[in-house]
Write a protein that binds this DNA or RNA. Structure first.
Length: 491
RNA sequence: CGGGGAGUAGUUCAGAUGGCUAGAACGCUGCGUUUGGGACGCAGAGGUCGCAGGUUCAAGUCCUGUCUCCCCGACCA
């Protein structure tokens, strides 16, 4: 922890990130390995994200449902590449009972309670859901089936980081079943668009999306697509994914339906998800050395009113503050008055800054006499004196301004740090210095991808539709290529 | 699983060559003064020094074992 201060962004971005999270009171490490305690404020942000995304999901004709946490081992292992991908990071339930130890001082696993078939704590829910789908789907009339689930997931990852990668995490996973390949493909691409739209609109973040390489593909998918955001240090963060599962799962889970001609068919499936990692992305995308910066549309508190008073004038100032509150809440819901008299004003200013509240309203003796308030915007820290009569309009306007200015900044970063690279020498230079995204042709061979990763630590992020059909030479081997991929170092 | 580092107050840490009632800062509690950018003074609470053995008149400090956590890589939303 840095005391009363900051870790300069340039020096150690990773430490800076952890610092922001600690100072904004978003989360902390739990005593359980790799797990995180999401604190109330961090959870409030997650809830805002959930709410916004859930709305979009429902509007696109998807219903929410909930499936079990436990997956029988046999389910998980039906799809060969699926189990291969997750085998190394599973939490497994083998027993169901404890008993007192012989010395009576503790408990131990009762060997008698061994399960006949082990249960896997879900690392993702394809298998447990599709087992059920096989019973739900019998006719073409049952399709398309579109379900979403908000749930927790356990993946025993080697290395964890708050929000970006934790052993247990919260997410949303959508699963759809279609009668045609074309429809499934459209669904997969539609979800990418949805995530990107959500990121732009709510999180004020711009990002790229496209197809992932064979090596980065989801275990069990025909194709995986990803949404890639850029952090302020130029590294990539996979924001969300969308998978085209083809008939891989329907075949092994025996999901079949009778089509209009009376023929038995295997449907085409998709799955897509985003997780609490979004909170991490949000933190990394906008924060500065003073702490978290939240876009208004995701801030649990959009405006905080800080009355500045002494014992003598406390009552009058609070009364005036409440008037301002009434005025602002005519149109804005998430407004808070910080009436605490046991901490200093400076402390409050600092605290709300660390928490990234978009607008702070300072109200003291001076403002009251002038019939005004001071608006301070979090992103630029710019102060503005505003007459009481204009407060509401100004606040509404300023919130919009902050939202769009954060988005513009994010977009600018993305564009300014994305470069078309032709020479491997230059490619290496980019990733040894400034980082960012490199647009480069790649022949598609695994060897080239691995060598690039080994030599530069940059990996293929995705192939955008704009990158398809771009003629050039593979950045590594020089062979003719028609695909321009995004390369980056990633979190 | 490799490579580093650390376990002492709620937190971050200090405690050479073993030594007497184990310390600081921040945080916490109380009282008073404060309050326009992280307030100050005074008083207080808070510790089986990760765990188990061993050496010794004496162990936070030395030895052996053991457990745990953190950081950097490989894996991933």
């Amino acid at each position: 922890m840095t005391e009363k201060g900051i870790t300069p962004r340039g020096e150690n971005y990773s430490q800076w990130y952890l610092d922001i999270i600690e100072r904004a009171e978003l989360a902390e490490n739990s005593s359980v390995r790799g797990c995180m305690v999401i604190k109330p404020y961090g959870y409030a942000i997650w809830e805002k994200i959930q709410k916004g995304l859930d709305k979009m999901i429902k509007e696109s004709g998807v219903e929410n449902a909930y499936f079990p946490l436990f997956i029988p081992k046999s389910f998980l292992s039906r799809e060969a590449s699926h189990i291969k991908g997750f085998a190394k990071e599973c939490a497994i339930v083998t027993h169901h009972r404890l008993k007192e130890t012989e010395d009576g001082k503790g408990v131990e696993v009762d060997p008698e309670s061994k399960l006949e078939e082990e249960l896997i704590v879900r690392p993702t829910s394809e298998t447990i859901m599709y087992d059920t789908f096989s019973r739900w789907i019998t006719s073409w009339r049952d399709l398309p089936l579109k379900l979403n689930q908000w749930a927790n997931i356990v993946r025993w990852e080697k290395r964890t980081r708050p929000f970006l990668r934790t052993t247990e995490f919260l997410w949303q996973e959508g699963h759809t079943v279609h009668s045609t390949q074309k429809e499934a493909k459209e669904e997969v691409l539609g979800r990418l668009a949805m995530y990107t739209e959500f990121a732009r609109q709510y999180l004020a973040m711009d990002m790229y999306f496209g197809k992932k390489s064979e090596s980065e593909k989801f275990a069990g998918a025909v194709d995986t697509y990803g949404v890639e955001a850029m952090m302020q240090d130029g590294k990539a963060l996979q924001f969300g994914t969308s998978h085209n599962l083809g008939q891989n799962f329907s075949k092994v889970f025996n999901i079949q339906y009778t089509d209009k001609k009376g023929e038995l068919k295997y449907p085409w499936q998709t799955s897509w998800g985003v997780s609490t990692r979004m909170v991490g992305a949000l933190v990394m995308a906008h924060s500065d050395d003073n702490g978290l910066v939240l876009p208004p549309s995701i801030a649990p508190v959009q405006v905080v009113l800080v009355p500045i008073f002494k014992d003598l004038n406390k009552e009058k100032i609070i009364r005036y503050t409440k008037d301002v509150y009434k005025e602002i809440t005519r149109k804005i819901d998430n407004v808070k008055i910080d009436e605490r008299d046991f901490v200093s004003v400076g402390f409050k200013f600092n605290e709300w800054e660390k928490k990234g509240i978009p607008i702070r309203v300072e109200i003291g003796e001076k403002e009251m006499k002038e019939g005004a308030v001071v608006l301070v915007r979090r992103d630029t820290l710019e102060k503005r004196n505003v007459k009481y009569g204009n407060v509401l309009d100004e606040v509404v306007l300023l919130l919009e301004e902050i939202q769009s200015s954060l988005y513009e900044k994010s977009k600018e970063l993305l564009i300014s740090k994305t470069h078309r690279i032709e020479e491997y020498k230059e490619f290496k230079k980019v990733f040894s210095e400034n980082k960012g995204f490199a647009l480069a042709n790649w022949c598609g061979s695994k060897e080239c991808e691995e060598n690039i990763k080994y030599e530069t630590k940059a990996t293929t992020r995705c192939l955008r539709t704009e990158g398809e059909g771009v003629l050039g030479k593979c950045i590594y081997c020089g062979k003719e290529s028609t695909e321009e991929w995004i390369f980056a170092k990633s979190y």
